[in-house]
Every structure is written in structure tokens, then in C-alpha cells.
Design a binder for these strands. Sequence first.
DNA 1: GTAACTGCAAAATATTTGCATCCTT
DNA 2: AAGGATGCAAATATTTTGCAGTTAC
Lengths: 138, 138
Amino acid sequence: MAFDVLDILKRNNLSVTDSRKKILEIFQQAGGALDHADIEKKTGDSFDRVTIYRTLQTFEAKGIIHTIPTIDNSILYALCKEECSQGNHRDNHIHFICDNCNTTYCLNHIPQSVVQLPEGFTEKRTDIIVSGICNKCK
Amino acid sequence: MAFDVLDILKRNNLSVTDSRKKILEIFQQAGGALDHADIEKKTGDSFDRVTIYRTLQTFEAKGIIHTIPTIDNSILYALCKEECSQGNHRDNHIHFICDNCNTTYCLNHIPQSVVQLPEGFTEKRTDIIVSGICNKCK
DNA sequence: GTAACTGCAAAATATTTGCATCCTT
DNA sequence: AAGGATGCAAATATTTTGCAGTTAC
């Protein structure tokens, strides 16, 4: 666990700091997606709010985490899988958000070219967000 | 045009006010999706910022417009098609956002159950957001 | 006339920026 | 030692709420 975290930071040429370690651990434990407020709660008040903003920005720029579109105002972040190496993102994940417990699941099931676009449109990225009830809440 | 707008308001038991008429017209002209800031720009400063917030909330509650999830922080709204009558929403639209001109298109092409969910997960709503280059910018 | 809508002011919340200090390498 | 990261303060942006005055029906 701890090893993984250090590994991620080193692989991305980021210096190893408490906040970065902690936030990565939180993502690993959560498994799913988190927003800024989730992370703030889980860190207690160990870190400044601003540090969390900046850490998330850094991670996203490095391709360590990615954003998930949501229907409400929040920005969700989730750890990228190994395949999405920096600059070569293929974020065509499917995300499932439970209407009851609000957990976000990353489903690894990636459909092949679901969408038939009209003439002249070029696809670069596709996000699929499914909401409903998850297997724990049913 | 003007008729349509009045019709929509009356059908939803909403009183006809300047701001509601204007905002509906803006959506009809735009064709695509708009966020709060877009609408504020297009209304000039005819209306208070708060009125726009409340009007959009009202329209969404009535099912006149719907929200579109976006990758960045913005909330996009778009006019619903006739099929989405109130309370009976089937918002499984596909939306295309052009990385260049930033226009959002509602594609009417609705795929049939694209997603194979794991056991125990129930789908209620599915949003598909495709980004890339639109036919005008290519 | 009454209920609903709007505008204004202000509160609450969210995000960004500048700068001095501290930590990682 | 040097560059980058953090914390604090403050600026900016976004959204919500309360209330008085106005408008639609």
C-alpha cells in the first residue's frame, strides 16, 4: 500500500509530501470516486483546503487521477488505471453513481464504439454515467 | 416562436413573465445547451442573476429543461424534447461537446441498453457525453 | 385581491491567487 | 542550498436565502 503510493509519486516526478501520500491513500482505500469535500472530510483537518485543491490539480495534470462528469455541481475524481499513462489517456470508463448511498463505482467494462456520430463529428473521449441503485443498496 | 414559448409556460402552469419568456427564447435560438453564464450574457443585464438561477430551477423542476453532466465544473442546461413529459423523464440523450467551439449538441440517437451492469445494479438514468470536434470545426 | 415572481441585499459556499515559510531532494 | 510545496490571508466567483415591492391572473 505505502509502496504503491510512493511508487506513483516517483514515477511522476513528484516530491513525496504528507498531503500527497495521504490523498493517494484515501483514493486507494475508497476504491471509487471522491470529490473535494469527501477528501477534506477524510483528511480531518490535517491539511489546508488550498493544499487539497492544488494536490488534486497536480494529480490530474500528471494523469494520476481523472475527473468524472456529474449531473450536479460536483467534480468527482478517481484514480486512473495503469493503462492511462500520462498523455495517453483513454478515459472511456463507465461510472455508476448510486442514488441512495451516493457511491461512485468505476466499471471497467468498456463498450466498443457505442455511439454512432453524425457525419463530420470526431470522437475523442466518451464518458458514460449511469445512475440508479447499487448492489449494496438494493 | 413566440407562440411556442407561451405554450410551454402554459402547459406547465407557469405564469408568463418577461424573464421566463426571454430565457426560453434564448434556449430555442441556441439550439444546444447553455450554462448560467451563457444565459446571463445573452440576457444582457435585463434580469437579476438570482432570477436566472430561480428560473432555471423552476424549468428543471417542471421538466422543461434538463441538466447535462460536464467534465469541468459547469452545469449545462438544455431544452427537453417533447417526449420527456413531466415526471416521465427519459433523459438518456447523448450529448456531444466540441473541444474547439465549445458548443453542446443533443444527439437524438438513443442506444438501447448500452451498458451491461454487474449483478445487483439497477439502471435508472444513463448519460453519455462525447467530446471531440464537431462538423463545423473539423 | 391574492398568490406568485422579481430585485436587492446579504449570507453561505466554493475556488483562486500572492506571498512568506517550510520541506524535499 | 535551491526549488518546490504548504499554510495563511485575502480576493474572486458561485449559489442560496430573506424580505419587500411588483406583477400576472
